[in-house]
Every structure is written in structure tokens, then in C-alpha cells.
Design a protein around this nucleic acid. Sequence first.
DNA 1: TGATAAAACTGAATCTATTCATTTTTACCT
DNA 2: AGGTAAAAATGAATAGATTCAGTTTTATCA
Lengths: 209, 209
Amino acid sequence: MPRTTADRRAPPAGPGRRERNKRDKQNRIIGAARALFQSQGYGQTTLGQIAAAAGVGTGTLFLYASSKEDLVVLVFLDEMSGVVDASFKKRARPAAVLEQLQSFLHGIVAYHAKDLELARALMKELTFLSNPERTRSVTRVADAIIERIREILEWGVAQGEIDLSRIDLVARIMFSVFYQQQLAWLSGFLSREQLDDNLNAMLDHLLRG
Amino acid sequence: MPRTTADRRAPPAGPGRRERNKRDKQNRIIGAARALFQSQGYGQTTLGQIAAAAGVGTGTLFLYASSKEDLVVLVFLDEMSGVVDASFKKRARPAAVLEQLQSFLHGIVAYHAKDLELARALMKELTFLSNPERTRSVTRVADAIIERIREILEWGVAQGEIDLSRIDLVARIMFSVFYQQQLAWLSGFLSREQLDDNLNAMLDHLLRG
DNA sequence: TGATAAAACTGAATCTATTCATTTTTACCT
DNA sequence: AGGTAAAAATGAATAGATTCAGTTTTATCA
């Protein structure tokens, strides 16, 4: 059915064709990359495969991510945010502050444990960002974790369970400890059990103020 | 002067020709890599250049390091140990425990600050080791830092300046904090000033037990 | 001393991420 | 509608790390 003059509508208020195409393409790229990373492993997946699966040229990938590593962040950072939220909601409750913290953080660790190679690649790039444009997004996730820790601590103080004066500072220290211990685990310096033990001991000490 | 039968000595007790050659070659490789990394930058230096400068084939490099990243560790890990020792010796003294800790850790930061690109490459590979054979060496450096922190803390306790029950645990927490904050700085999430401020506040809090 | 096997070495070939000159698509204007 | 310039997309070309089949060196032993 050919379009006639009568078909003309008001200029579409929404995103134009160009922007829509870009989003579609980005979604295809992210979807293809996620599927391949998860089914074949990060290292085994080539950009050529991702481009083919997404139906774009290889060069096109670089319009959306600055490198293969950056692509991992593009693909999984949103998911990370979801994991943080979910793990916070699902944390052990009612329970002592220490148990809540452990439960929350272990939820994050459990997510990474499902695919260690991918977790390594993701954390590696999160830690050593190659694309400065991603800084804000990464900071947001880190801040979200710190904020969740802070909420748990405040709850403990309100319950009279613990007595901390500088909650913000303690929350940031706890995040540092969590982050570094998680890296040590992902890099093979610690077993999962050692990670749990260390975190347990360190958080417990920090709670005693 | 041609070698005669009379020249024959007892079988050399020391390393044989094979081992000596290997060491020579490794020294040449390490020297060439260090020189090029420092003069041109890590990213600009190719393995071809290193091999040429060391007078070996490119394939030979992979008999000594498992990758370009691993080569950085091979080249600079020894130096790191020296830096830790030197920084410990040169630390502010006599001074309060907090100042000694700051002085010690800032010495390490100052070393990295001399060449940020190299520091990034080194810390990236230390954190996400690709060559498992290097695990022991890396652990040794980390343990050395923790041990130095512990010594300073013990000195403080002996002086009656601080009152910490679990010194080992606190030392490990401090290392975690230091490590993570240093990564955040190297990755551009923190300025040098923020790094200093954060470390100062966190260490101070940890000292108050 | 010569023969033999193991170890070390080599650099050309391979494999992929990344770049870039060219082409295609889109938005905008008359 | 047609013309134009900017934006997006493309994939062949490039570059550089890594591999590997073949060569050289070293140690060992008859």
C-alpha cells in the first residue's frame, strides 16, 4: 500500500529512525555478545563471531564499545546493578548485622561464581577501565554497594545492636575489603572458603568498632 | 691457545653451559624489556622490539614469560620488593603510628606515580595473573607489605600509643584497603589527593580499634 | 670422540583485535 | 521531490601477540 500525501502525520515526537536503528543495533550486539560469551566463554569468542551473530560489520562493534573488554562491561554492567539490588533484597532477615552483610555480599560473589572466566574478564575491565566514558556507570554500581552496606549498618545502629560513630567511613572500608578480597578470589589467590572466612573475620572486626 | 687433554678439569660444580646461557638470555630479555618499557612506554613497545634488543627470536620470549603482560611482572616484581623494603626503611621516624603507615605506603604509591602507564600494566597483571607460576612471587610481595604494616602496628602497641587486640587481622584489613584504594587511583577513579585523604581517614579509623 | 636424545631456540605463519578509506543511510533544507 | 551534508556502517587492510614445525645447541653415554 503506497504511502500518499494524506498519510503524512505530525513529525514523530519519539526517537527518529536514526536513533531507533542505533538502539536496535546496540541491542542486537549486546544480545549476541552475551549469548556467545555465556555459551562459549569470553576467551573463545571472537569479535567476528559477535558481529556475524548481530548481523553487523566487525567495524560497527567499535562504534558501540571501544574494545572487546569494554564490550563485556557494556553487556554485563546493567546486570550487575540488578544483582546488587536482588542480593540486597534477598539478604538474610531478620538477622544480626554481620549475617546480613555476609548474606548480601555473598549474593554478589555467587553471581560471579556462576561463570568465573566471565567474572574475571568483567572485574578486570571494571577495575582497569579502558573506556573513560564508562567511569560514571562503574562508579554508580560501586556506590550502590556502599550505600547498601551503609543501610544495613544504620539498621544495626537503630536496633542498638552495634555502636558505630562513622558509618559512612566504615561502609567504605567494608567495600574496599570486599572488593580486594573478591579480586584475590577471582585471581586464584584465595579459595572460595578462604574468601568467606576472611570476609567474615574482617567484617566482624569492623563491626566491633 | 688450543685446549689440550691436560686442560680437562673436574666437572664444573657450578651451573652448566645450558643453565648459564638461559640466565644470560633471561637477563638480556629482562634488561631489554625494562629499558624499552621505560623509554617508550608499555603500550608502544612491541615484543619484536624487545626480542631484537635482547638478541633473541620473538618466540624465545615465550620461553621466559607466558605473555607480554607476564613479562611486565617478570621485569618489575623484584624491583617492587626492593621498593617495599626501601620505603619501609625510609618511613617517617620517630613519628606516630599513623604517620609511619602513611609514609610507608606513600613510598609505594610514589614509585608507581613515576610511570603511571607501567604501574597500571603491572598492577593489572599482578591482580589478574595470567601465569599461575607467578602466584608465589606475587604473594610474597603482598605478604611483605602486610608484614611491614604489622611491624609498625606492633611498635605502636609496644609504645602504648595504640591498643589493638588483633594486630594480624588489622594489618590484613589495612592491606586490603590500601590495595583497593591504590587500584582506584591507578584506574582514574580517584585523584592522588583523594587517595591520600581516603587512606588517611581509613587508616586512622582502623587504628582507633 | 661420535652418536643420540633432550632442551632450547627460531622466525615465518597464524589468528584476532583494531583501524580506516569508502559506501550507505538518514535528516534537513529548498 | 531532489540535493546535500552529517552520521553510521562496512569489511578489507593492518598490526602485533602468540604458536609451532623445523633447526640448533647441549648433555649424556658408549
